[in-house]
Design a protein around this nucleic acid. Structure first.
Lengths: 244, 244
DNA sequence: CGGACAATTGATCTACCTCAAAATTGGTGG
DNA sequence: CCACCAATTTTGAGGTAGATCAATTGTCCG
């Protein structure tokens, strides 16, 4: 398992720039505690003051906030290699919660270890910072959807995004990727009702763009899906690897 | 003017932790080029690869993206002391644009200078990082509004937020703060139509919560506004100053 | 095999949009 | 200093995407 945690982090960092041996060794030396979480279980809650952050190793997690009246807004979905609560490194109090969507394996790293690492390896610090900036870019893109797109484009866009993110960490298989997210969760992420999500997903199927099972997304017509969603992957900042 | 730029940055940093003399000197030594922008003028555009970032000294700026069909989504408004494109430090290509909302005075600092600074002063680096994390927290809060609140709560929330942010940089006067933002801009920020924004603002006035002129917000009933908007300022992370 | 959760369907309702025009406002040039 | 222009704000009437409420069906898993 220790090897898994290393490769996840190392691969993630190397998508920014090639690591030196020293940097690779420093990452591998990070003490990581691996823990499993049941589906729907909170990992960190709004109001907490975490002393560690959480590297997703397997499964899907989401960040969310609950309002009065049972309304919920999901801000992001996270897959293997993501560190969804990295921001807790510099924001003492959590302003939202982090939960497992599916059964989850996660590695926990103490803040002090991360601070130590970034202090001594400024390029790794920059890479971590960059991760949080990409998170923010994704938030902005979701805002575009919720503010200025109709339900169909909004849902299609999320499917594109999840597919591309899965691809980047090698989770795609042919034209399929894992997507174990319920329609209720889609609704809470997109600012819609489960009922409406259901109807629009049927439209997407009828248009021959995708097949969605309970746990898998298959993209039948990528071009069509991109067009329907106005998807432009620039905001994910998956630049070709170059030396800095 | 050099003094203005210094105080803006220094004050902003000190809201995180008390600076050492050394840190204060390093900030003051940053070469800053001051420039004025007319209202509605772009400062940085989507697709640009900036080599500097922009410190707002006076006026209001916004970040936005344009979609086909003339739809626009505004992501944030920025006032004195903000560095709205700080993220360009680690994301090579701009995935959105930055524009002046009002006539604007801004100071520009070269990336290399900022990198130099953060490399030698890791606490300042952390403070800059933190700024971008708070931006992201505000994005999340706007998502909550667009996804799960009706227009009245959404608008009221933005008014609360702008008031509190103004207060933090000493721009409030009694129960008023500058808010030179048109209803069209509100609409593009909130995912609404200008027509609907107009009607809801009238409701807020009729409820006796606020007075809004073209350039100034006056809060008549803060409690009422907070209740109507479900405003909880935790997400702004304006913690009491403490030593790190 | 049962029980809970997830997906689906149908009927009705409403917050917000669209389109169009009028009334205000503020800045600018003469 | 005033008159005018362009941008904003405001008003009205009708339309629609998506919400709400309430079942029903399907599916996974112990």
């Amino acid at each position: 398992m220790a090897q898994n945690t290393d490769t996840a982090l190392v691969r993630r960092m190397e998508s920014f720039f090639p690591l030196t041996d020293q940097e690779r060794r420093a990452l591998a030396a990070l003490p990581v505690i691996v823990r499993r979480h049941a589906a729907k279980q909170d990992i960190v809650q709004e109001g907490d003051r975490p002393t560690q952050c959480c590297l997703i190793l397997e499964g899907v997690a989401c960040r969310y906030k609950i309002l009065g009246g049972g309304r919920r807004q999901i801000f992001s979905f996270h897959i293997a290699g993501d560190i969804p609560d990295l921001e807790s490194l510099h924001l003492r109090v959590m302003d939202h919660s982090l939960a497992a969507v599916t059964p989850l394996t996660a590695g926990f790293i103490r803040h002090e270890q991360v601070r130590e690492l970034t202090a001594h390896h400024s390029r790794l610090g920059a890479a971590f910072w960059r991760e949080t900036l990409i998170d923010a870019a994704i938030f902005r893109q979701w805002m575009v959807g919720m503010g200025r797109k109709e339900a169909l484009g909004r849902i299609a866009h999320l499917l594109c995004e999840m597919y591309v993110k899965s691809q980047a960490v090698g989770l795609t298989d042919g034209q399929s990727c894992p997507l174990p997210i319920t329609q209720v969760e889609f609704a809470d992420a997109l600012g819609l009702t489960p009922v409406h999500v259901n109807r629009v997903l049927q439209d997407l199927r009828r248009m021959g763009l995708v097949v969605l099972t309970r746990s898998t997304l298959t993209v039948l017509d990528w071009e069509g899906l991109v067009r329907a969603s106005e998807f432009e992957p620039l905001y994910l900042h998956q630049e070709p690897r170059e030396v800095t």
